Deep mutational scan, measured.
Amino acid sequence: MTFKLIINGKTLKGETTTEAVDAATAEKVFKQYFNDNGIDGEWTYDDATKTFTITE
């Protein structure tokens, strides 16, 4: 399955996707992406659209 990440950061904005077997696996991938890029904020997940959103 394809999961999308929408980034609404102070310095970084955009979208990316990842292929994962489930939302929990995608969450781990995206959290690592947050850490690697110094993004910290509030994030949500919409199961209907398989979209994670992080807002700094």
Rank of each mutant, 00 (worst) to 15 (best):
T11H: 13
T11L: 11
T16C: 15
Q32Y: 06
T53Y: 08
D40P: 07
T2P: 04
E27D: 03
Y33N: 03
E15R: 06
N37R: 14
T17S: 11
N35H: 13
A24G: 06
K13H: 09
A23K: 13
K28P: 01
E15I: 12
W43C: 06
A20N: 03
L12G: 12
L12H: 12
E15Q: 09
K31F: 06
G14L: 15
F52S: 00
Y33V: 05
K13A: 09
A26K: 01
T55A: 05
T51V: 04
V29G: 03
K10Y: 11
E42C: 10
A48I: 10
N35A: 14
T55R: 05
K4H: 13
I6M: 04
I6F: 05
G9R: 06
G38S: 09
D36F: 12
T16E: 06
N8W: 12
E27P: 01
K31R: 14
T16I: 15
Q32S: 11
E56Q: 11
Y45E: 00
V21I: 12
T2D: 04
E27S: 06
D47H: 08
T17G: 03
K28S: 08
A24T: 08
K13W: 12
F52R: 00
N35G: 12
I7K: 00
F3W: 04
T53F: 08
K28A: 12
N35I: 15
E15C: 15
N8E: 08
V29S: 05
Y45K: 00
I6R: 05
F3G: 01
D46V: 03
G41R: 04
V29N: 07
A48E: 11
G9V: 15
E27A: 11
K4I: 12
K10N: 10
Y45I: 00
I6Y: 04
T49I: 05
V21Y: 08
A23P: 07
F30Y: 02
T16S: 08
Y33P: 02
G14Q: 12
T25P: 00
T2L: 12
D47I: 07
V29I: 14
D47M: 07
L12V: 11
D40L: 13
T11C: 15
I7V: 08
E56W: 13
M1A: 07
G41K: 04
N37C: 15
K4V: 12
E15Y: 13
E15V: 11
T2R: 12
G38P: 12
K50Y: 08
Y45M: 00
L12F: 14
F52L: 01
D46N: 09
A20D: 02
T44D: 07
A48P: 06
V29Q: 10
D47G: 06
K28M: 10
N8H: 10
T17L: 07
W43P: 02
K10P: 09
N37W: 15
G41L: 07
F30N: 01
D46P: 00
F52C: 01
G14H: 13
T53N: 03
E19K: 12
D47Q: 09
F52N: 00
T25Y: 06
K31C: 06
V21W: 10
E19T: 14
E15K: 06
D40K: 13
T11E: 10
F3P: 01
N8D: 08
T49K: 05
D22E: 03
T18H: 05
D22I: 02
N8G: 03
K50A: 05
T55V: 09
V21M: 11
G38N: 11
M1Q: 10
E42S: 08
